[in-house]
Each structure stands twice: as structure tokens, then as C-alpha cells.
């Protein structure tokens, strides 16, 4: 019922995380609507967006959860980490504090997601070069150390936004091709494989994605 009118082979679930005001909602809006949303209000809890993309000739539907950066919604947003195949971790290049918090975001992500979840670091607002507070090299080094993909982007101009989402999808698709991501048990679009090596009982490791006839609910 939620499959929509289009045919696609996979559903990838993404989550966008990061401090308040780094531009998570704007990135999502730019990606789904190809428009910059000025005066974006604070996200309450989570917002949702979808878009169909193509990777290696395969149509893939991205279901993206845009989370609230505010601390008070942390409990709410945690629910959406499980089952995420891709996590876009965003900071603001003009505010060092948002960069400094990255390690705690990363810990959360690693704790709550599947080990095969692709984590992509985005330094947003790269159009504000004059107010830069975090150098590209520094962030690049951080990403490399933690095995993250990294790009600086601008939700306002749209620079690299598309690329970030697409690169993530390509990486996930690659994992599927390599067999690192288990696709069976495609019952609800989010599969649960507690017996997977490394799965912690307290935090059921989420597979994600769905099979060809996704979402049968």
C-alpha cells in the first residue's frame, strides 16, 4: 500500500542526524524538492521525505528520516536509527561546536545501527566560506580516521547535496552486491537479524531495506 505508484527494486532507509540548526531539514528539502527552504522551523521529533533515485540501473526508493537536533527529542529520534541503511551525519562548517559534537553522534549511531550502515559526514553551509570555522582538512581527517565518507555541501546552493545522498546509496548497493548486507526476511521492509554475528541483544541490529515486493503491510 505504501509502495507508491512507481516501480522500484529497493527501499533504503536513511537517517539524518546532527546538532540543532546545522541544516538537516534543509538538506532533505533540497534533495527531495530541489529547493532551498529559508526560515526552516525547528523539527519536532522527526520529519520524513522520500525520493526515487537510480543506482547502477536499479530504481531505489529512499525513505529519509530527518531528526530533530534538539536534545529533548533524543529519545524519540533514537527509534529511527535502527533500520537505517544510511546515516547522514551533519555539522555546520561555520560553528565549531557542531563539529565537536560529532563523536557523540557517531557513538550513538554506531551503538544503534547495524555495523553495515553507511555513515556519511556532511559539512553543511559551505556557501558561507567567509564564516568558516572548521577546515576541510580537519573534518576530512576525522572522517578518514572513523571510516566515514565525507563531503562539504550547501543546502542553500544545492552543492554536493545530491552527491551525498547518491554516494551513500551507491555504497549501500555495493554492500548488497558484496553480500555484506543480508536481504532475506523482507517482510516489513526492516528486517531484524538477532542471530547475526555481532548483534547485541539490547539493540537488535537492523538490517534494513526491503525485498522486491517491499512493504506488504
Amino acid at each position: 500500500m505504501s509502495a507508491g505508484p512507481y516501480n522500484y527494486s529497493y527501499i533504503f532507509k536513511y537517517i539524518i542526524i546532527g546538532d540543532m540548526g546545522v541544516g538537516k531539514s534543509c538538506l532533505l528539502h533540497q534533495f527531495t524538492e530541489k529547493k532551498f527552504m529559508a526560515d526552516c522551523p525547528h523539527t519536532i521529533g522527526v520529519e520524513f521525505g522520500t525520493r526515487i533515485i537510480e543506482v547502477s540501473g536499479q530504481k531505489i526508493k529512499l525513505q529519509i528520516w530527518d531528526t530533530a537536533g534538539q536534545e529533548r527529542f533524543r529519545a524519540v529520534t533514537r527509534s529511527y536509527y535502527r533500520g537505517a541503511a544510511g546515516a547522514l551525519m551533519v555539522y555546520d562548517i561555520t560553528r565549531r561546536s557542531t563539529y565537536n559534537h560529532l563523536s557523540s553522534w557517531l557513538t550513538d549511531t554506531r551503538n544503534l545501527t547495524n555495523p553495515s550502515t553507511v555513515i556519511f559526514l556532511i559539512g553543511n553551509k559551505c556557501d558561507l566560506e567567509g564564516q568558516r570555522d572548521v577546515t576541510y582538512e580537519e573534518a576530512s581527517k576525522f572522517a578518514e580516521e572513523n571510516g566515514l565518507m565525507f563531503v562539504e555541501a550547501s543546502a542553500k546552493t544545492g552543492d554536493n547535496v545530491e552527491e551525498a545522498f547518491l554516494e551513500t546509496a551507491k555504497k549501500i548497493y555495493q554492500s548488497i552486491q558484496d553480500g555484506r548486507l543480508d536481504l532475506n526476511a523482507a517482510e516489513s521492509g526492516v528486517q531484524h537479524k538477532p542471530s547475526q554475528p555481532g548483534g547485541r541483544p539490547g539493540s537488535a541490529a537492523g538490517g534494513d531495506q526491503s525485498g522486491r515486493d517491499n512493504c506488504a503491510c
Binding site: G4, P5, F48, S188, V190, G202, A204
Partner: peptide, 28 residues
Amino acid sequence: TSARAERLTAQADAQLDTLVAEQAGALV
């Protein structure tokens, strides 16, 4: 209303995951 329903379903799935995790944790 399928676009909204998709969102709601995804939201329900996320909550179910959480509940399963909570429940499994409690059992363990």
C-alpha cells in the same frame, strides 16, 4: 493518501523496532 501512509508505516516500523529492542532487552 499513500504518501502519508508510507510515512506512518515507516514510523510504525521504527517504533516496532524500538519496542522489540526494549522487549528483547527486558527478556534478556
